[in-house]
Design a protein around this nucleic acid. Structure first.
Length: 331
DNA sequence: AAGACCAGCAACCGCGCTGTA
DNA sequence: CTACAGCGCGGTTGCTGGTCT
């Protein structure tokens, strides 16, 4: 018994999304929330596969997505998380809430792989050869590989301790806020968050409309204005749902547990450059964890994959056995 | 100026997991 | 327990714009 096609292949449009389609999709999500993607084409009239709709939303239209070039800090995180987790792009993305897994995956494949290969070649000839023209390289490779591994191990131990403290029974009461949604995705269990996330999407939609208007020839203005009306309604909706008290509280500071310090330690960065403390707290509360907590709120919150791994001796074993030379496929 | 080549990225495809009836 | 729908994920493809020849 074969799996039925996810959508009717006949009459399904493929290829790049048009602004009109984007707006239809955004309108749908504003009305119904993300999810039930199968209903999207039928409800909106979009001639798109449900999966295509979901992908478009999660990778492009979703609130809180940051586009543009990656910062050094993000690069470092990706490199280290990739070394820890492998090609688990979704897991990595949960630690970079403003980036999508697809973005990270593309960035890894197109930029970081080359960069690391180049660096590896460079360092194989001479330990301190050039190639340190980027921030991460000077941090990651100015020290020897062995030193880097030892430091990472020490950092992980620190992070383990902090995470263990943070997730212990004593602090259980803090977990819901500590582990609030991190990535701008919607949580049906928390309407306040949903409101905030919707509000965040204003920026995306505004950008979308701006680009659309910019790219729309004069003779299409009438069409544009009519759709813009609907998106204005959408923005009104979003504005009405966004207020300061609905915003997610700054989680880490409230918890009294400095998770940021743990992850800062784990990733070895002195500062979280890009960001406000709030932003950092979101980045340190992976959605993975939230999903797991949702599954059984009455028990001690299970750890995320990474955290479990960190708290597990496997991690130690892995690290002590890890070698760049033995894992050429990683780079 | 035009064709070839290349890099970057958006989108697609297929598989696996999970929840539900 | 099983079948199925829905969704998420990772790998891959193919389009587009920029650069080179």
């Amino acid at each position: 018994m074969g799996r039925p096609p996810c959508c009717d292949k006949v009459g399904v449009k493929k290829g790049p999304w048009t602004p009109e389609e984007d707006i239809m999709l955004v309108s749908y999500v504003q009305e119904h929330g993300p999810g039930n993607w199968r209903a999207v084409p039928a409800t909106t009239g979009l001639r798109r596969c449900s999966k295509s709709c979901r992908l478009r939303w999660t990778n492009y239209l979703r609130p809180g997505i940051k586009r543009g070039s990656f910062t050094d800090h993000e690069e470092k995180m990706i490199i280290q998380l990739q070394a820890l987790l492998g090609n688990k792009w979704a897991a990595i993305a949960s630690y970079l809430p403003e980036r999508t897994d697809n973005d990270i995956k593309n960035y890894w494949n197109t930029h970081l792989m080359k960069k690391l290969k180049k660096l590896q070649n460079g360092s194989s000839g001479s330990d301190h050869k050039s190639g340190n023209d980027h921030g991460f390289s000077s941090t990651s490779h100015s020290i020897s590989r062995g030193q880097w591994e030892r430091r990472l191990q020490a950092d992980i131990n620190t992070a383990k301790q902090a995470l263990h403290d943070a997730l212990s029974f004593e602090n259980k009461s803090h977990l819901p806020e500590l582990l609030a949604p991190s990535n701008g995705c919607f949580s049906n269990t928390n309407p306040d968050h949903q409101a905030f996330s919707y509000a965040s999407s204003t920026e995306n939609i505004a950008r979308l409309l701006k680009e659309w208007v910019k790219n729309t020839p004069k003779h299409e203005e009438s069409k544009c204005s009519s759709t813009q009306d609907s998106s204005n309604n959408a923005m009104n909706y979003m504005d009405s749902t966004c207020s300061e008290e609905t915003r997610a509280p700054s989680t880490a500071s409230k918890s009294g547990i400095d998770l940021s310090e743990a992850f800062d330690s784990l990733f070895g960065f002195g500062t979280f450059e890009s960001s406000s403390p709030d932003e950092f707290s979101r980045s340190t509360s992976p959605s993975l964890v939230q999903d797991e907590i949702k599954s059984d709120p009455n028990t001690l919150a299970p750890l995320s994959t990474l955290e479990s791994w960190l708290l597990d001796d496997q991690g130690k074993d892995y690290l002590s056995n890890f070698s760049f030379d033995e894992n050429p496929d990683l780079f």
